[in-house]
Amino acid sequence: MSYFGIPVFLRRPAYGNPLQARQAGRAAVRRKTAVYPLSGNLYEGSIKGEHFLVKINGTDMDMDGKTVSEYLALTGCNPKLVAVERNEEIIPKAQYDTTVFEDGDTVEVVSFVGGG
């Protein structure tokens, strides 16, 4: 089934630019429903080559598909000094290797500093 072969009311929007894609991602998080994954051929061609974004500490980053451990290694964060929450839930340390960031995730990595 090609994209143009399905009725208009069944089509989901093909996000033409990253901003629209991000907004759709956020809306998905709010609704607790998944607009993605973009499997099958429904969107084939319309989104090819697009990067989907994860908002980490307020900045959109191209980390879709990366694990928490990969992100921490890439940014030089010591896993022993952080707490990581995704969409308002803490990610247990034991799951850093297996938890994959997905498009539309809002993530906060708290890096603790000393003093008290």
Partner: peptide, 18 residues
């Protein structure tokens, strides 16, 4: 959490939330 060292802070926060 009122510790001094960053590692202890992270340990307690993660532990409690988990």
């Amino acid at each position: 959490e009122a510790f001094d060292h960053a590692e202890n802070k992270a340990m307690l926060v993660n532990g409690v939330l988990e």
